[in-house]
């Protein structure tokens, strides 16, 4: 089963694969992100209710979607790593975690900034923002756990186990926060519902969503390659890479 996947379990091929995919992802990300942002910020019509402040949606919604997406993909990598004992999948967990944490942080910040003109307060205990905050704590937990271990192999395995446990809790947290929010509905907070989107507002949003996906993929490739290097430090192909990089460094110095 999945015969085509097995060659990529070998570290070196996975390392080269990452660096082969990198240019595609980064170019796609650059194009879609720039196009989507300019289209959304400058050309899309303003919202009849919120005016131009709604344009923050082009950054808040993609980061919120991919903060959740990154966590689930991290958990899937953890699962693959533990169930099928594929080393690189476990390494991917710590490759994705910081990127996911950054996206969650961005979703929180843009959500708070967007909330200021709408509700007059920097922070509102709205259901979506609260579960986003809890997701940030889950990410910090995975990163902190990984860094507290000395031996990087056990660290990667522990982080993937925590990621799996976390992903089971994400829907639970989401619905309990949702229920908690409706419970206190009387607490005079207007429901933060998605504005009904007209098509020419939707296209830039889809572009940005794709853009952020490609950025997530590109950075993850970079970080995964780095994790593979750290993990296989003793292997001959990494030693060769280090030799080659040091000769470059010395030649650079000689050249100067």
């Amino acid at each position: 089963m999945w015969k085509w996947l097995h060659p990529y379990a070998k570290a070196e091929t996975a390392y080269n694969l990452c660096y082969r995919l990198l240019p595609y992802f980064s170019w796609l990300a650059a194009i879609t992100l720039i196009a989507g942002s300019i289209w959304g910020l400058l050309y899309a019509p303003a919202d009849y209710q919120q005016g131009d402040s709604f344009r923050i949606i082009y950054f808040h919604v993609p980061t919120a979607i991919w903060s959740m997406g990154a966590y689930t993909s991290m958990a899937i990598c953890g699962m693959v790593g533990i169930v099928w004992q594929i080393k690189n999948a476990e390494l991917a967990v710590y490759a994705i975690a910081p990127v996911g944490a950054a996206f969650t942080f961005l979703a929180l910040v843009t959500g708070a900034v967007w909330g200021k003109p709408m509700w007059g307060a920097w922070w509102v205990w709205d259901a979506r923002l609260t579960s986003e905050l809890i997701l940030l704590f889950l990410y910090l937990g995975v990163i902190a756990l990984y860094n507290s271990f000395e031996d990087k192999r056990t660290a990667a395995r522990a982080a993937s186990i925590l990621a799996i446990v976390g992903v089971v809790n994400v829907p639970i947290i989401h619905y309990s926060v949702e229920w908690w929010n409706t419970l206190h509905q009387g607490a005079s907070i207007t429901k933060f519902d998605k504005p009904s989107i007209s098509p020419d507002m939707l296209w830039p949003l889809l572009l940005n969503i794709a853009g952020f996906l490609f950025i997530l993929a590109a950075i993850t490739c970079l970080r995964l390659a780095n994790q593979i290097l750290i993990n296989d430090a003793r292997r001959p192909w990494v030693k060769a890479l280090v030799e080659q990089s040091s000769t470059e460094a010395t030649s650079l110095v000689k050249g100067k």
């Binding site: 942002s37 910020l41 005016g51 131009d52 402040s53 923050i56 808040h60 843009t110």
Partner: peptide
């Protein structure tokens, strides 16, 4: 000015 919300929109874009 961004319809009066310039500060919010551009600050969040900058942070992102």
């Amino acid at each position: 000015a961004m319809g009066g919300y310039g500060a919010y929109v551009w600050s969040s874009v900058a942070i992102v």
